[in-house]
Design a protein around this nucleic acid. Structure first.
Length: 773
DNA sequence: AATAACTTTCTTTTT
DNA sequence: GAAAGTTATT
């Protein structure tokens, strides 16, 4: 893992093994232009399949070949590890490994994690800080909510984390957030935000957002450090620029400020990460930030057939927010796009399976040529079943990766604790695993003591006698402490694999898994063994003595796709999000149903709906030759069968390139979703996901509201006339229809779809709704 | 304190 | 239909 070398590599740049003009070969004129424009700001706007990434890598290779920049002066940022790896491979192929070796190429997170490792002390961290993923962060939030007596049922820790994360990404401080908080949920988040940040700091830990925000803080605080990096990275490249969030934008802008050699590549039509703070505005305002920027459009698609492009174009044409761009191709018309209608999700999966087999036989496609895309991870199950039954090998991208498995995270938590004693999340995770008699109550007392004394939880263990536990518990806790303690030294003096192996053995995790005696326990046992191997492998490659902590930091940033091997013969199953940047001969987009794609929550707000549409656009444009769209008329969701209707996207699409399975053209109902003049909001009849209750079960009978019964559909005793289906009026929002009700008495809330402002959730206590007619 | 049995809620999408 | 949380039992 050469990429984890920490020192800057300042040795002389080796001579390029290739001439610059050779690099330009095989590129079209526009691409060559983009490659040649090496100085100053450049924006490459490009459609799917136009060779964006290719152009970017050629540009980097060109810089190296010209000896314009030394490798370590080039910073190239991507969004996934996979993209970074691919990019590096391509550059290597062009200029040779020695020259490509020293480049800084990786995800935003991995690059800045490495930087923060070097600069940690400037912000009061140690270089061995822990990196908290969503699960760790959620654990912290849950604890905090508990200690602040917040009801985790009303607002989940996850939703709190989401709000805090988005505040962080927008660079809103806890104090500001407190002022801005408007809803009850935001109020709660505002109360947790500050303690959350403080807890992380005390734990010597950073979450994913911190990895981007802390560098910004650092640069603001220390002009000297900023200057160092501005001069280090004189050429900055950013792939998928449309997906950068505020922090990423600021970070790269600050870094590029001195030399202004920044090149961004993106496609506004493929922006699909607004939900995690991505801001299309960044790509739209590039010209404003850099008035002398050259903009280069790549509009020729080398990937898809004419029919597929026409379909894609008709999808995106329904969006208002977009940059002007016309894709064209020299490719042939291709085959018509096939729309498949299925009875159920099972049937849908079977049809897809049959198509794959059929095309494999008739057109000679290999399994790697196929991809099945869907909106939610949960949809993979039925597809997997069908493929398994049909004997077609597949791989699922995403889902839980190796490093997210419970047993792996348990082991990693032990190791993290050894490296970073302040790491509370890890301490909490392992203090009573395997079970050693330190229950919730004991833990509460320990952490409360630490809180009172203003010390870290580990220090509380060190001062165990002062906590005031019974002798018996003290012995148990002391034994745990004494078991882990030696490793806190050893982690820094001995090879990582030896430390890890001994610690794992001593904790008894392996024995615990073995004694389970189940098949699952065996698998987990094997996984732990595999982790030990991975650490050993890492140690062999990396001679840095303290590398256990860098290993831990690295694996925190690993995600699914890292294990995937595209060479083996399998059909790929993945979410539409995960498919970005990839291409396949044959693509299936499954589950085109209202409420699923677009998702129910997203179908009310124009912005969110447009994002769903871009997602559809991304999915459709993954296909080179064949595209299949499918929907099922019923689907097993939420533990029950629900009937569905086909997605509105199918009504919008250019039907001339589409055929049904029967070979007929699609009959569209273009006005199906228009909100008509008066009161009829067409959703209620057409979208069963809004009316799940009433369509799947007989009309909910008014139940007497028992106390503690949270499943009350509506409250008879109060405002009894406000029930799902009734039209109501609100002072500000105007007229709307009640979609559903929840809660009783003061807690009663209604989800109302207003004609003017869309869907809102209102507390009846405050919202003074009047029933119309 | 640990286990078993139960109830409840939840599904976007990810570094 | 899973995961997480709650309650009852040992």
């Amino acid at each position: 893992m050469r990429q984890f070398r920490l020192e800057f590599d300042a040795e002389a740049t080796p001579a390029p093994s290739i001439q610059a003009d050779q690099i330009l070969q095989g590129l079209n004129e526009r691409q060559q232009e983009a490659v040649r424009a090496t100085d100053g700001p450049v924006m490459i706007v490009a459609g799917p399949g136009s060779g964006k990434t290719r152009t970017l890598t050629h540009r980097i290779a060109y810089l190296l070949a010209l000896n314009k920049a030394r490798p370590y002066q080039i910073l190239s940022l991507t969004f996934t590890n996979k993209a970074a790896r691919e990019m590096k491979d391509r550059v290597e192929k062009l200029v040779g490994p020695e020259l490509a070796g020293g480049m800084w190429m990786g995800t935003f997170h991995s690059i800045f994690a490495r930087m923060m490792r070097v600069e940690a002390e400037a912000l009061g961290y140690t270089r061995d800080f822990s990196i908290y993923d969503t699960e760790d962060a959620e654990r912290i939030i849950r604890e905090l909510m508990g200690s602040l007596n917040m009801d985790t049922r009303q607002f989940s820790p996850r939703s709190m984390l989401f709000l805090i994360s988005s505040a962080k990404n927008h660079m809103v401080s806890p104090e500001e957030y407190q002022r801005l908080a408007a809803t009850a949920q935001q109020d709660l988040a505002a109360r947790i935000y500050k303690p959350y940040v403080e807890t992380l700091k005390r734990a010597n830990a950073m979450d994913f957002d911190d990895l981007l925000i802390k560098p910004i803080e650092l640069f603001r605080l220390r002009a000297d450090i900023l200057e160092k990096y501005q001069n280090r990275w004189t050429y900055i490249h950013i792939d998928e620029y449309q997906d950068t969030n505020r922090a990423q934008y600021l970070l790269t802008k600050t870094l590029a400020d001195r030399h202004r050699n920044i090149c961004v590549v993106g496609d506004d039509a493929q922006s699909i990460y607004a939900f995690r703070g991505a801001d299309i505005g960044n790509i739209l305002s590039f010209q404003r930030d850099y008035p002398n920027a050259s903009t280069i459009r790549l509009e020729q698609s080398y990937r898809s057939s004419k029919r597929i492009l026409r379909l894609a174009d008709s999808i995106i044409g329904h969006n208002k927010d977009q940059l002007e761009k016309t894709l064209w191709t020299e490719n042939g018309d291709g085959t018509p796009i096939v729309l498949m209608e299925a009875v159920s999700e099972k049937d849908e999966a079977q049809k897809i399976e049959r198509r794959i087999r059929d095309l494999g036989v008739r057109a000679g496609y290999r399994h790697t040529d196929f991809a099945v895309l869907y909106r939610t991870n949960a949809q993979s199950r039925s597809l997997e079943d069908a493929l398994r039954r049909g004997g077609i090998p597949y791989r699922v991208v995403g889902g839980t990766s190796f490093y997210q498995r419970r047993e792996i995270k348990d082991v990693l938590a032990y190791l993290r604790l050894a490296v970073n004693p302040n790491d509370v999340a890890s301490l909490r995770r392992v203090i009573n695993y395997p079970v050693r008699g330190i229950g919730a109550k004991t833990q509460d007392e320990l952490f409360a003591f630490a809180e009172r004394q203003g010390i870290s939880a580990w220090e509380a263990l060190e001062r165990l006698t002062e906590v005031g536990l019974t002798t018996r518990t003290q012995t148990l806790v002391g034994a745990f402490r004494d078991m882990v303690k030696p490793y806190m030294q050893r982690a820094f003096t001995e090879p990582a694999d030896a430390v890890a192996r001994d610690l794992i053995k001593e904790t008894g995790i392996l024995a615990d898994l073995r004694d389970e005696g189940t098949q699952e326990g065996l698998v987990r046992w094997e996984n732990v063994q595999e982790l030990i191997n991975a650490i050993a492998e890492f140690t062999a490659q990396e001679r840095d003595a303290a590398s256990l902590s860098s290993f831990l930091q690295q694996v925190s940033l690993f995600t699914d796709q890292d294990a995937t091997d595209s060479r083996d013969e399998r059909v790929t199953l993945m979410t539409l999000h995960a498919s970005k940047g990839l291409e396949f001969e044959v693509v299936f987009v499954a589950g085109l149903e209202e409420g699923l794609f677009p998702l129910a929550n997203a179908s009310q707000e124009r912005k969110e709906l447009e994002e769903e549409r871009r997602l559809f656009y991304v999915g459709a444009t993954r296909a080179k030759a064949h595209l299949f769209l499918s929907f099922a008329r019923s689907r097993f969701r939420f533990g029950e069968t629900t009937s569905s209707i086909r997605s509105r996207f199918l009504e919008e699409v250019d039907a001339s390139v589409l055929l049904t399975e029967a070979g007929e053209t699609l009959e569209q109902k273009p006005n199906r979703f228009q909100v008509t003049e008066k009161r009829s909001i067409a959703y209620e009849r057409l979208d069963p996901h809004y009316y799940r209750e009433s369509l799947t079960t007989p009309k909910p009978k008014p139940k007497p509201a028992k106390s503690g019964d949270r499943r009350v559909v509506y409250d008879e005793t109060e405002g009894g006339r406000i029930v799902p289906g009734v039209v109501v009026e609100h002072e500000q929002f105007g007229e709307g229809k009640v979609l559903s009700m929840e809660g009783v008495g003061d807690q009663a809330r209604a989800v109302v779809f207003f004609k003017e402002v869309g869907q809102k959730k209102l507390a009846l206590k405050f919202a003074k709704l009047r029933v119309v007619e």
